[in-house]
Amino acid sequence: MPSETPQAEVGPTGCPHRSGPHSAKGSLEKGSPEDKEAKEPLWIRPDAPSRCTWQLGRPASESPHHHTAPAKSPKILPDILKKIGDTPMVRINKIGKKFGLKCELLAKCEFFNAGGSVKDRISLRMIEDAERDGTLKPGDTIIEPTSGNTGIGLALAAAVRGYRCIIVMPEKMSSEKVDVLRALGAEIVRTPTNARFDSPESHVGVAWRLKNEIPNSHILDQYRNASNPLAHYDTTADEILQQCDGKLDMLVASVGTGGTITGIARKLKEKCPGCRIIGVDPEGSILAEPEELNQTEQTTYEVEGIGYDFIPTVLDRTVVDKWFKSNDEEAFTFARMLIAQEGLLCGGSAGSTVAVAVKAAQELQEGQRCVVILPDSVRNYMTKFLSDRWMLQKGFLKEEDLTEKKPWWWHLRVQELGLSAPLTVLPTITCGHTIEILREKGFDQAPVVDEAGVILGMVTLGNMLSSLLAGKVQPSDQVGKVIYKQFKQIRLTDTLGRLSHILEMDHFALVV
């Protein structure tokens, strides 16, 4: 994948999101292997301009796509893939009243899908469409860049269908997702969380590099694949309309690839034109409109599966009536509230959605109805927002919020430890010299600072030695090549209790 991002070429006709291997024109390309080798690009942008032909009021008969309808489940399912879809609609009884809503608040519980998330729908649909058009064949390999849930859905379907599955996901995604993927037989590649989507090191860039190296491999490409919004247009939206008897006044959905909100909203605009569509985008993402909503100094966020630093091709923002931004604290607070007060075992993005819903639905009156999409299960986040310690460490809970008995030293300040200034190293000294210094002084790690004293990161003896043994660096290389740029900081005025929580999850903390 090139470091400079080429513009994806656009073909003359058809839909841009065809499933299957992508040609340089962004659509299915038939021909000899030699032709494909000559024409197939190194990668295709996940934010390529959409060429979708959908228009409100256009006859369904003019759609270029294969459409399906929700099917009634048999008493005995032939395999677990038949437990994807037909998820329950559940009334939220307490939270709406707590925040003064007059309307009825309903939750579409997508964590009841077989793999635990709304992404099971698009995973199965992308595979079925690729099999139907002859792209996927027995023994082929599926590769997908994902925040985890699409990966789980694909790995689940691949396990049943017999495909090899490789999932490329950023490091910030939970260990629970990784464990589930491994249990399903998927191979996992992790990428830096802070890598831009168009960087060769991003999950998108690495996935395309693997595709170019592995024979008979395919990126189904949830960011561009029409099967993504079509899955929701054909099934999720129809289920909502049936469950609500066609009567709903507002739908609120958090947005990642945009397939969920695009597919549902398009069908609702056709069948229930008075329904307002509300999009939820986390602070630090750029999906919301108008652009002024996205202006923030924050560039990272903890909530998973929603928000991006690019506009995915499948996201149709014209069908969203209003956007709201959400933050991590309210997302996790509301997710825990949904679990504790409503018994809905949902993930953090569901918290984002409901946090926005109780604001947006203030305009609705008694007798009206708001539906929220709860995308995934708490299963993926047992060591994250479900953990009091994690919430404390991230600053989303305060010590006084917890009532468990603490040891005698818990409320003492870090400054009472009488710490001395640490050994520091410059980023320009060599790895070999740094190892000598650390061994001589008896230290395992040291902060790396520039000549102005600005902290650049941390270097550890173990990481340097393993990097040297693996051949990633040489003793003569500058130590700046092996620094940890993500590390926890703590102030002298913070409590030892807070430091204790940090050290339970990290090997060190830097006192500043």
Rank of each mutant, 00 (worst) to 15 (best):
Pro200Ser: 08
Asp179Glu: 09
Asp140Met: 08
Ile219Asp: 00
Val252Met: 13
Ser175Cys: 08
Glu176Thr: 00
Ala130Ile: 01
Ala155Asn: 03
Lys39Pro: 12
Asp140Glu: 10
Cys52Leu: 00
His232Ala: 00
Arg161Thr: 04
Thr146Arg: 01
Ala186Cys: 01
Ile127His: 03
Leu156Ser: 02
Pro59Thr: 12
Asn149Tyr: 01
Pro2Gln: 13
Gly246Ser: 07
Asp198Pro: 07
Arg18Glu: 12
Lys271Cys: 12
His66Lys: 05
Cys272Gln: 10
Thr5Val: 03
Met173Ser: 10
Phe197Met: 06
Arg51His: 07
His232Thr: 00
Ala38Tyr: 09
Ser63Lys: 06
Ala60Gln: 10
Glu110Leu: 00
Pro88Arg: 08
Val204Cys: 10
Ser123Met: 02
Gly96Met: 10
Gln55Cys: 15
Gly100Tyr: 03
Lys36Thr: 08
Ile142Tyr: 01
Cys109Ser: 08
Leu230Tyr: 09
Gln242His: 11
Leu124Arg: 06
Pro41Ala: 12
Leu230Val: 14
Lys36Asn: 15
Val178Phe: 15
Glu37Met: 07
Cys103Phe: 06
Leu230Pro: 04
Ala71Arg: 12
Ala24Tyr: 09
Thr5Asn: 11
Val168Lys: 02
Asp120Val: 03
Asp47Pro: 06
Lys98Leu: 07
Ser117Ile: 03
Lys36Met: 12
Tyr223Met: 04
Asp129Tyr: 07
Phe197His: 06
Ile214Ala: 02
Glu239Trp: 00
Arg91Cys: 02
Leu124Asn: 11
Gly20Arg: 11
Leu136Lys: 01
Asp198His: 08
Arg182Tyr: 09
Gly256Gln: 00
Gly116Cys: 13
Gly162Val: 03
Ala107Ile: 04
Ile44Glu: 11
Ser27Lys: 15
Leu42His: 08
Thr193Asn: 11
Lys172Cys: 00
Glu131Asp: 12
Met126Asp: 06
Gly116Lys: 13
Pro229Trp: 01
Gln55Pro: 06
Lys36Asp: 05
Pro192Gly: 08
Ile142Ser: 03
Thr87Ser: 07
Asp221Val: 02
Gly139Met: 06
His67Phe: 14
Leu268Ser: 03
Asp129Met: 05
Asp47Met: 04
Asp35Ser: 09
Ala130Glu: 03
Glu104Ile: 04
Pro88Cys: 13
Tyr163Gln: 01
Ile122Glu: 01
Gln7Ala: 11
Val10Leu: 15
Ser61His: 03
Lys267Pro: 03
Lys94Phe: 05
Arg164Glu: 08
Asp249Gly: 13
Val206Cys: 09
Glu62Trp: 04
Lys267Gln: 15
Lys97Asn: 11
Ser199Gln: 08
Ala253Met: 07
Thr236Ile: 08
Glu37Ala: 07
Ala183Leu: 03
Arg224Val: 05
Pro16Ser: 05
Asp249Cys: 04
Gln242Trp: 04
Glu40Phe: 15
Gly11Trp: 09
Val180Asp: 02
Lys269Met: 08
Lys83Gln: 11
Lys36Arg: 14
Ala186Ser: 03
Gly153Tyr: 01
Ser73Asn: 14
Glu104Ala: 12
Arg161Asp: 03
Arg266Gln: 05
Ser19Thr: 05
Thr150Arg: 00
Pro46Asn: 01
Gly258Trp: 00
Leu184Glu: 02
Thr5Met: 05
Glu201Leu: 10
Val160Ser: 09
Glu201Gly: 15
Ser23Pro: 11
Pro16Val: 03
Gly100Cys: 08
Leu181Lys: 01
Arg58Ser: 05
Lys25Gly: 09
Ala158Leu: 02
Glu29Asn: 12
Val180Thr: 09
Lys108Thr: 02
Arg190Met: 05
Arg161Glu: 06
Pro49Ser: 11
Gln55Glu: 12
Ile152Phe: 05
Ile76Asn: 14
Pro33Ile: 10
Leu42Asp: 11
Leu77Met: 13
Asp245Met: 08
Glu110Lys: 04
Lys97His: 09
Ser254Tyr: 02
Ala207Glu: 01
Ala24Ile: 10
Gly20Tyr: 03
Asp120Trp: 07
Lys267Thr: 08
Ser202Tyr: 04
Leu136Glu: 01
Met173Leu: 09
Met89Asn: 03
Lys172Trp: 00
Lys25Ile: 13
Leu268Pro: 01
Ser199Arg: 08
Pro12Tyr: 08
Ile166Ser: 08
Ser117Tyr: 03
Leu105Val: 15
Ile264Tyr: 02
